Amino acid sequence: MKKVQVNYIESFGTQDGPGIRMVIFTQGCKMRCLYCQNPDTLPFKGGTAMSWEELLDKALRQKEYFGTRGGVTVSGGEPLLQAEGLIPLFKALHEKGINTALDTNGFVWNEHVEELLKHTDYVLLDIKHIDPKTHKKLTGVHLAPILDFTEKIKPLHKRLWIRYVLVPEWNDADNDLRNWAKFVHTLPGVERIEVLPYHTLGVPKYGELGKEYKLHGIQSPTAELKERTVRIFEEEGLENIIVK
């Protein structure tokens, strides 16, 4: 059975799904987002190889803190790259009455991903930009696979939380916001929209890794910009919008 390459595990997380959660950050990602806050999770090598039994044991030791809403979220990196190793974990979590969530960029689809989603309660989907050219500049990859992912999960009737990292000068134009909202409005099962304001807390990691941070000079969104973003999303029919 494949082990999961884990970068780190956060106990008592409250930012990645409902309730109190154990958040497993996996190793490896094909995207190269200019604002990535966890550049140490990008390489496929690294982290700690853990079996699903080890991860389940950690979750069971925290289960009493989850209550009725909390559970386990797997983030990254990109967790779908390790879907095969996560399937037995998610199956076991469901058998123990623990809900599951995936925080994903939707760039991966294969038979293992499809199987894993059958045992996933919440999908926290990051859609970085809706314009293909800007998406490629911002993330280093094409938008088409993400759009394909959204089509393939429609018949699975997943509970979706859609995330938007708001980056000034990159995806804050009215037209970009409206087009993004129009697209998201077509997705079934969307329960929540999370606006994640860009920040620079992860910048020191780039120096530690000897990497160049390419968004120097970009400031965090102002209160006015965040309010405008919410207003535009609401005008386009989106509901339950949360600014993190």
Rank of each mutant, 00 (worst) to 15 (best):
A144W: 10
E64C: 05
L166N: 10
G46R: 14
L166K: 11
K45M: 02
K3F: 05
T134W: 10
H185K: 15
I193Q: 02
K2Y: 14
K96W: 07
E191I: 12
P145M: 02
L187V: 12
C29G: 09
W180S: 00
V203P: 14
E115W: 09
C36E: 08
T222Y: 13
L225V: 04
E111A: 11
I24W: 14
R61K: 15
L209S: 04
I242P: 02
K211E: 09
K118G: 14
C36H: 11
N175F: 03
D131C: 03
N38G: 06
G207A: 03
H199T: 08
G140E: 04
L89G: 02
T41N: 10
D176S: 10
K226T: 14
W109Y: 05
Q37Y: 15
L160Y: 11
K152F: 02
H119M: 09
T200E: 08
A101Y: 05
G202R: 11
Y198S: 06
I20M: 06
L80A: 01
P155T: 06
D103H: 13
F44V: 11
S75C: 08
V108F: 09
R163T: 11
K154N: 09
L81I: 10
G17R: 04
E208G: 09
L209T: 06
G237F: 02
K214Y: 03
H216D: 08
S75Y: 14
H216I: 10
I20D: 00
P43G: 02
G19T: 13
D103N: 07
D172L: 04
V6R: 07
G140V: 11
V6A: 00
K214R: 11
I193M: 14
V108Y: 10
L196R: 07
K128G: 02
K63H: 06
V123N: 04
T14H: 04
W109F: 02
Y35P: 05
F149Y: 15
L166V: 13
E212Y: 04
V113C: 09
E64K: 13
W109I: 10
V243L: 03
P204N: 02
L201Q: 05
P221T: 01
G237P: 14
A92W: 12
T139A: 03
E236G: 08
L187G: 08
Q37E: 01
R228Q: 07
I242A: 07
I153N: 00
Q62Y: 15
L156A: 06
K244Y: 10
E224H: 05
L125Q: 01
L196K: 08
H119A: 10
E95W: 06
K133E: 15
F12D: 01
H112D: 07
E54S: 09
V230Q: 06
W109H: 07
T186K: 15
Y198N: 12
V23H: 11
F12G: 05
R192C: 13
H119L: 06
H216G: 13
K30M: 05
D103Q: 05
L60K: 15
G76C: 09
I87V: 15
H94F: 01
N105I: 05
Y65N: 07
Q27T: 05
M50E: 08
P155A: 00
L201F: 12
E84L: 10
E114F: 06
A49R: 11
I98R: 02
R192G: 03
G217W: 08
A223R: 15
L238T: 13
P204L: 03
F90Y: 14
K205H: 05
T200V: 12
Y65H: 12
K226P: 03
H157L: 08
Y213T: 03
E212N: 10
E194F: 06
V167Y: 03
L187D: 04
